[in-house]
């Protein structure tokens, strides 16, 4: 069987759409989580928690929409799986860091360990984007 370019693009678009829908669902979950938590926080709010949905929205939905529209062939790149693993882990780690920061801010406390989530999150995002860039360059 011969796969034509249009078939490859369709497959890539399907995979990327799946990613986009996953990130939309994750974004919605973050917003709902923040709203539900607000019900039990006696009016105390936290920008870290309220804005944590931006990580999956901008870092997830927006990036994968751009990839789908501008470089769908990235799906077939050699290290695409490494990019997905690293980048997605980074987004999730930063989102969880936002949630934890919100929990701590609302409770009026802090943790010295929160910074490690943020460092790990950004490190994985940078690694993921670097891998993607290298893959696209080699493609």
């Amino acid at each position: 069987m011969t796969l034509y370019t249009s078939d490859i693009n369709k497959t890539a678009a399907r995979r990327l759409n799946k990613k986009i829908y996953s990130y939309i669902a994750f974004t919605a979950f973050c917003i709902v989580f923040d709203r539900i938590y607000a019900l039990f926080s006696h009016g105390v709010s936290s920008a870290s928690m309220s804005l944590m949905f931006l990580y999956p929205l901008i870092g997830g939905v927006l990036l994968f929409v751009l990839i789908r529209n501008l470089a769908p062939h990235a799906c077939g790149a050699k290290h695409y799986r490494l990019f997905i693993n690293s980048y997605s882990s980074g987004i999730i780690t930063l989102t969880i860091a936002g949630a934890l920061a919100g929990v701590f801010e609302i409770a009026g406390t802090s943790s010295p360990y929160l910074i490690y989530f943020i460092i790990c999150g950004w490190a994985m995002i940078i690694l993921g984007l670097f891998t993607l860039a290298v893959s696209l360059f080699q493609f």
Binding site: L82, N85, S88, L100, Y113
Partner: peptide
Amino acid sequence: FQKPYRWAVIYAIILSLSVTFVLLNTF
């Protein structure tokens, strides 16, 4: 880690343990 979900499962476990530790340590 190229195999689907292997990384996801391992990382989810690491992340869950980390979050649990931080929450217990804090509260």
